[in-house]
């Protein structure tokens, strides 16, 4: 593997991200604030209900759930789709495909450098503050499982967004498709409410989709809202979805490359 080339790509990605760092910090604050509003809403619901638990979640647990969801959702959005879209639109992909590096890996490296310099520091700081402020007890095993879930979720969403980005060969832009998938992740992945609140029939459907793996499972793991057996089952599910989506992605990208016509670059 050409590690020098990938580390150079990583440095370029970091430098490009730092150009808009001020914008990122301000936007992150506003983004996290929007999750604060979800907490306000659920607090109002719990107070009105005079209930100690709803759907198996107590009020402190729901607060912790949404804080963690808000923080980790920053990680669950790579820029793979935008990079691929831009490369296809501007014809840069032709030049990149003939370089002695794997194109898909170079896209991942570029977007990961963006995540490393922006989302990861914010996530570490915000999570530490949240764990301390909310007195969440986290064992080292839980923390390791949580990190593993985040890592697998990140790779999974990265592959999905790469596949979405490749659609720009047929549709020119993929903003709508990308936003549609992100909306589905937010709603069906537990970003608006924990999946325990869904009716039973809906939970069956959601359980068959990968969206729950991005927000609900890591947050519920950290908050102790799911048991050890369930966590184990979810880990198996992560591996299974990773195998399925990577396999599909590999076949799909092979087809897309054959249909590619680039002008420019």
């Amino acid at each position: 593997m050409n590690t020098r080339a990938y580390s150079s790509l990583m440095i370029i990605g970091i430098k490009s991200t730092l150009v808009y760092f001020k914008d990122f910090i301000l936007s992150s604050v506003l983004y996290l604030l929007s999750f604060l509003f979800i907490i306000f809403i659920w607090n109002a619901v719990y107070i009105s209900e005079h209930a100690t638990t709803i759907g198996g979640f107590s009020l402190p647990q729901i607060d912790a759930y949404f804080i963690v969801v808000g923080i980790i959702s920053m990680l669950m959005n790579t820029s793979n789709d935008n990079i691929l879209e831009e490369d296809i639109q501007e014809g840069n992909i032709a030049g990149k495909l003939i370089k002695p590096i794997n194109y898909a890996a170079s896209v991942f490296t570029e977007s990961t450098s963006n995540t490393l310099i922006t989302a990861v520091p914010v996530i570490i700081i915000a999570l530490t503050i949240a764990i301390l402020a909310l007195h969440i007890t986290v064992s080292s095993t839980t923390l390791l499982v949580f990190i593993a879930e985040l890592a697998m979720g990140y790779i999974l969403i990265g592959i999905i967004q790469f596949i979405i980005g490749s659609f720009s060969i047929y549709t020119t832009t993929i903003d709508g498709f990308s936003s549609l998938v992100m909306t589905m992740i937010a709603f069906l992945g537990g970003g608006i409410m924990p999946l325990n609140f869904f009716p039973l029939w809906a939970r069956g459907i959601v359980g068959a989709l990968p969206f729950q793996l991005f927000l609900y499972v890591p947050s519920a793991t950290l908050n102790g809202a799911i048991s050890g057996t369930q966590i184990y089952n979810y880990l198996v599910l992560y591996v299974a979805w990773l195998a399925v989506i990577s396999g599909l992605g590999f076949i799909w990208w092979g087809r897309v490359k054959r249909n590619l016509t680039a002008v420019g670059g």
């Binding site: 619901v45 009105s48 936003s179 608006i192």
Partner: peptide
Amino acid sequence: VALSLMSTVVTYAGITIIYNVSSGIP
């Protein structure tokens, strides 16, 4: 268009679920 309609569905489903599991916003 699908995304736009989805936002209406999500709004509708979200409110319906809130009122299914609780008495909602005071």
